[in-house]
Design a binder for these strands. Structure first.
Length: 548
RNA sequence: GCGCCCAUAGCUCAGCUGGAUAGAGCAGCAGCCUUCUAAGCUGCGGGUCGCAGGUUCGAAUCCUGCUGGGCGCGCCA
C-alpha cells in the first residue's frame, strides 16, 4: 500500500543505475524508530551481482531518484545499505482515503479470483464426540477457509469420513451390546476395545424406547448394522452441533464408502496396476512405493480383501483433483504425518500435479490447568470433549487460542488463562478495542455525528494517528500473507498490534468535543479501525461485541 | 534404528522466507481516570536465539553434526 507511492520511482532509478531487470524490489516495515515508515533492501540484494558495496549502491539509487517525490518527506541510506522512506502526513491521509473506499470489504483481496480451493478439515469419524484436541484442526481449518474466501477464492469446505470401517463396527457392536443388556438379553459380551462412553448407553436407550418393535424382528447381523447406523446418525448430530457452536459448517460431507460403491477405489487400483506399481505378496496387494522414491512398499489391500486406508485416501485425493479444484488443502494432526508422502506419491504416479495439494500439519495440543497437564482419552470415562472446553471458556476463546500459535509448534492451551475474562486474556483485548470504538460511535450518534467517508482528513497528523493508519494499511497484505503461507496465527498477531495502535490513539487523541474538523476526521479513523477489527475477528470466527 | 516437527527473556510465544541495537504478552517494579469503556495507556528491569562447525557483505532464519523434547514408522485410521 505505502510502497506504491515510491515503487515506480525506485524501478526507474534501478534502471538508471543498470541493475539487473529481474531484481526483486522487496520492502519491509522497520521496527526500529528513526528508520522511517518503509524501507527497501534492494541495494543489499544487488551487492553480489554488481560487485559493489551495498551502501554505495543504495546511495546511487537514492541519487537516481527525483529530488522530491510527492508524499515522501525524506529518503535516507542507513545501516548496511537500507533505503529508508519517511512519508508525509498527507500521504497517510490519502492512504486512509483509499482504505475508506473499501467499505465493509476492507482487508479483502482479489488475488484468488477465478481459483477454486477445497479445504478438508475436522474429518473425524462419527464414532463419538469431538474431543478437546480436535479443536485445533477445527479452528485452523475453518480460519484458513475463511482466509481463502477473503482473498477471493472459490472455497469448498469438506468433511471426509468413513462410516464403514473397523471403528464404526466397534461402535455398532458397543451400542448393540448395551441395547441387548437393556432388553434383558445380556448374553452378548461387550467388545474388548469397544467404546465405553456414556453416550453409547444413551444411544442404546434411545433405540430401546423408540424402535423396540423393529429391533425385535432383526437377526444379530441386521441389528448390528442397525445399531451402527443409529450410532453414526447420533454421533454426526452431536459433531455438527459442536461445530455449529464454533460457527463451522461444511459444504460437503464426503463418505469414504462412496468411493467403493462408485468403483473409484477399484479404478485407482487398476490405474496403479497398469503403471506396474501393484503386486501381490503373501496374499496381500502391495503398492510399490519404492519405485516412487519412498522408503518402503506398503499394503493397499489386506489378505482379508479389505483395503488399508492408503488406497481410499489416494482415490479420494484423485477424486478431489478430478472434481477440478485448483488447490487442495488438507488439515492433519501430527499423528497422520507418515501417511502423507505415500498418498502424494500415489496421486503423482497417477499423473496429477501434487503441487496443487497443500498439506497443513498441526502439532499436538497440551491442556494446562494451573500448571498441571490435563489428561484425556477418547475411550475411557475421563474424556474431555470439545463441548466441555467450549462450556468452560466460550467459543470465541476456543477459536482464538487454537489459531494464535504457529501450526508447526506444540500448542499449550492454558485453561486458567482462557477462562479469565480480564486483561490477561488476549481475546478480550481485541474485543475490548472493538467495543470501545462502538461506544464512541454510539455517543457520537447521540450528538448527531456520524463517521463520513468524505470528511476532510488534513488534520490527522498526530503520531498516534499516523501509526494507526499505517497499521490499517497493512491489513489486506496481512490477510493475503496469512492465506498464502497457510499461517493463520499471523492474523492474530496483527490484530493485537492493531488494537494496540488504536488504544494508543484513543489515549492520546480525544475525539468527541474537539474542533469539528478534528472530531469528524478522528471519528472516521475510529470507524475505519472498527471495520478492520470486525473483519479480522470475523475471519478468525470470533465475535466482535459492540458492548462489553 | 529411521522419518517429520520443535528448541528465542522467569512463563507463553512472534520474528514478514537472509538484514539495522532480536520483539510482544503475561509475571515483577514505577506512574496515568472531575472529560469519549482503566478489560486501557506510559516507563523500567530482564537474552551466549539449545551446543559446535559451515555458507557470505550479513545467520535466530540456510547446510552438516550433536543434545534434549514431541509425533509417527501396521495386512489400524
Amino acid at each position: 500500500m505505502l510502497h506504491t507511492i515510491v515503487d515506480s520511482f525506485l524501478r526507474d532509478a534501478l534502471q538508471r543505475i543498470n541493475a539487473p531487470a529481474d531484481v526483486v524490489l522487496a520492502f519491509e516495515y522497520p521496527r526500529q524508530e528513526g528508520f522511517g515508515h518503509l524501507s527497501t533492501t534492494v541495494a543489499m540484494a544487488l551487492a553480489r551481482s554488481l560487485r559493489q558495496n551495498p551502501r554505495a549502491i543504495a546511495q546511487s539509487i537514492v541519487d537516481a531518484l527525483p529530488p522530491s517525490i510527492e508524499g515522501v518527506e525524506s529518503v535516507s541510506v542507513a545501516g548496511a545499505g537500507f533505503i529508508n522512506f519517511t512519508f508525509t502526513p498527507s500521504a497517510f491521509q490519502s492512504v486512509m482515503r483509499t482504505l475508506q473506499s473499501r467499505g465493509d470489504e476492507l482487508g479483502s483481496s482479489t488475488i484468488g479470483r477465478g481459483t477454486s480451493v477445497n479445504v478438508e478439515y475436522v474429518s473425524a469419524n462419527p464414532t463419538g464426540f469431538l474431543h478437546a484436541g480436535h479443536g485445533r484442526n477445527c479452528a485452523v481449518g475453518d480460519t484458513l477457509a475463511n482466509l481463502y474466501r477473503w482473498c477471493g477464492y472459490d472455497v469448498t469446505r469438506e468433511y471426509y469420513f468413513n462410516n464403514a470401517g473397523n471403528q464404526m463396527n466397534k461402535l455398532g457392536e458397543s451400542i448393540m451390546v448395551r441395547l441387548l443388556q437393556r432388553l434383558g438379553q445380556g448374553d452378548a459380551v461387550f467388545p474388548e476395545d469397544g467404546y465405553h462412553g456414556e453416550y453409547i448407553s444413551t444411544i442404546a436407550d434411545q433405540i430401546a424406547q423408540t424402535q423396540r418393535d423393529v429391533v425385535d424382528t432383526m437377526t444379530r447381523d441386521e441389528l448390528h448394522a442397525f445399531c451402527r447406523k443409529q450410532g453414526e446418525l447420533w454421533c454426526f448430530d452431536a459433531i455438527r452441533a459442536t461445530l455449529k457452536t464454533l460457527g463451522i459448517s461444511h459444504d460437503v460431507f464426503f463418505n469414504e464408502d462412496s468411493l467403493y460403491t462408485d468403483g473409484k477405489v477399484e479404478a485407482t487400483v487398476a490405474a496403479l496396476r497398469s503403471l506396474g506399481l501393484v503386486y501381490e505378496h503373501e496374499g496381500a496387494t502391495w503398492l510399490a512405493l519404492t519405485k516412487l522414491g519412498q522408503p518402503q512398499d506398503k499394503v493397499i489391500i489386506k489378505s482379508s480383501g479389505e483395503p488399508t486406508y492408503r488406497l481410499p485416501d489416494i482415490a479420494y485425493h484423485r477424486d478431489k483433483l478430478e472434481r477440478g479444484f485448483d488447490v487442495i488443502v488438507d488439515i492433519f494432526g501430527a499423528d497422520h504425518i507418515a501417511t502423507i508422502p505415500d498418498v502424494l506419491a500415489g496421486v503423482q504416479a497417477l499423473g496429477f500435479d501434487t503441487s496443487r495439494v497443500r498439506v497443513v500439519i498441526h502439532q499436538m495440543v497440551t491442556f494446562l490447568e494451573n500448571g498441571e497437564i490435563v489428561k484425556f482419552s477418547k475411550r475411557s470415562g475421563t474424556s474431555f470433549t470439545l463441548d466441555d472446553l467450549i462450556d468452560e471458556v466460550g467459543a470465541d476463546v476456543v477459536r482464538f487460542f487454537f489459531v494464535m500459535r504457529a501450526v508447526g509448534t506444540h500448542l499449550e492451551f492454558d485453561l486458567a488463562l482462557a477462562k479469565e475474562e480480564g486483561d490477561r486474556n488476549p481475546v478480550f483485548y481485541l474485543q475490548y478495542a472493538h467495543a470501545r470504538i462502538c461506544s464512541i460511535l454510539r455517543r457520537a450518534a447521540e450528538k448527531g455525528l456520524r463517521p463520513a467517508i468524505d470528511t476532510n482528513l488534513d488534520v490527522l497528523t498526530h503520531r498516534a494517528e499516523i501509526d494507526l493508519i499505517l497499521a490499517l494499511s497493512r491489513f489486506q497484505e496481512t490477510v493475503e500473507r496469512a492465506c498464502g503461507n497457510l499461517e493463520p496465527h499471523t492474523l492474530c498477531d496483527y490484530l493485537r498490534d492493531l488494537a494496540g495502535y488504536y488504544h494508543a490513539f484513543y489515549h492520546d487523541c480525544r475525539i468527541l468535543g474537539e474542533a469539528v474538523e478534528v472530531e469528524q476526521a478522528r471519528l472516521a479513523l475510529a470507524d475505519l479501525t472498527r471495520v478492520a477489527m470486525k473483519n479480522g475477528l470475523t475471519i478468525l470466527g470470533v465475535s466482535a461485541p459492540e458492548q462489553m
